[in-house]
């Protein structure tokens, strides 16, 4: 079952097509990465999913149902550009935002108390948002986004502007919510974050999906015969000949690129022939960043 299905979704603005015939599925209970550079159409897509705008063409299904007026209550959205009422107190503000998501005063109060305790910020209730630091405001914003227990959470660049401690705090919360069954869409242009967090991704560029699937599978598909070696002794650079190229070489390890038609066995055999003691040997899979650059290069051509 898919929490979200997009079918041939199109969003046009005056002079350009922000989302151009996009289709993909997001399975329930997954942390799903939506990747792409700025202007790829991620935010336009999110705005359609959150009912802020409407698709010009195509269908958006939440949990199998076409998008309707009740869905926004089941979605939690942390926008990239975030803001709060500066002059309002943290407590009042969170209550207000929670009640706009359909919670009763009492439920909202209880849930908020739980979250404030969890983040150890119960004493912020009567503080004005303007008095908090930017990182602190992000925590408040995160609570506003999750307080109504959404079944789908959309996080647009959730870690931008957070220090490492708060990044980890939020990351842990994301994992925990996911463990409790919340599906999560994680939109970012920072590829390395996705590799750590997401199981499945979709890669967008210029309004189109260029790549989608399981992160591991994608990486395997894009393996490019790079190997990392650790060994004792001097590296016999003469033995490589034209078949291999050293990409990186330092005291501990080196990265070697096998050229077209040559493989790891050939490399190992050669090294063993020279009696070099190999401590470790592993394939270096390309980073999503590399894959992205490769893919976008192709789609731009």
């Amino acid at each position: 079952m898919n929490i979200l299905s997009l079918r041939n979704v199109v969003k046009r603005y005056e002079k350009h097509t922000a989302v151009n015939d996009v289709s993909f599925d997001i399975p329930k209970g997954k942390i799903f990465g939506m990747l792409g550079p700025n202007g790829a159409g991620k935010t336009s897509l999110i705005r359609m999913i959150t009912s802020i705008t409407k698709a010009d063409e195509g269908k958006i299904l939440i949990d199998g149902e076409p998008l309707n007026a009740m869905h926004p209550m089941q979605i939690g959205y942390l926008p990239e550009e975030r803001g709060l009422y500066k002059k309002m107190k943290v407590g009042e503000q969170l209550l207000y935002l929670a009640r706009l998501k359909g919670l009763t005063q009492k439920d909202a109060r209880n849930k908020l108390n739980g979250w404030l305790e969890k983040f150890e910020i119960t004493d912020w209730w009567n503080k004005k948002v303007g008095e908090l630091s930017k990182g602190m405001q992000q925590k408040v914003q995160f609570i506003a986004c999750v307080v109504h227990d959404p079944k789908l959470m959309i996080l647009d660049e959730p870690f931008s502007g957070l220090d490492p401690i708060n990044t980890n705090l939020i990351k842990d919360e994301i994992y925990e919510m996911n463990k409790n069954g919340t599906s999560i869409i994680f939109s970012t242009h920072r590829m390395e974050q996705v590799e750590q967090i997401c199981e499945e991704i979709v890669l967008m560029n210029q309004g189109k999906v260029v790549l989608e699937g399981n992160v591991k599978n994608i990486k395997n598909d894009f393996r490019d015969d790079k190997f990392e070696l650790e060994f004792d002794g001097q590296f016999p650079s003469d033995m490589l000949g034209d078949s291999f190229e050293i990409l990186k070489d330092d005291a501990i390890s080196c990265v070697i690129q096998a050229k077209e038609g040559h493989d790891s066995n050939e490399l190992l055999r050669g090294l063993m022939d020279k009696n070099i003691k190999i401590n470790s040997f592993k394939e270096v899979l390309p980073s999503l960043n590399d894959i992205f650059i490769k893919k976008v290069g192709e789609s731009n051509e």
Partner: peptide, 12 residues
């Protein structure tokens, strides 16, 4: 300008 509208418009 303080962008809270994006959060609000996703609810109302």
């Amino acid at each position: 300008l303080n962008r809270i509208v994006e959060v609000l418009i996703s609810s109302v």
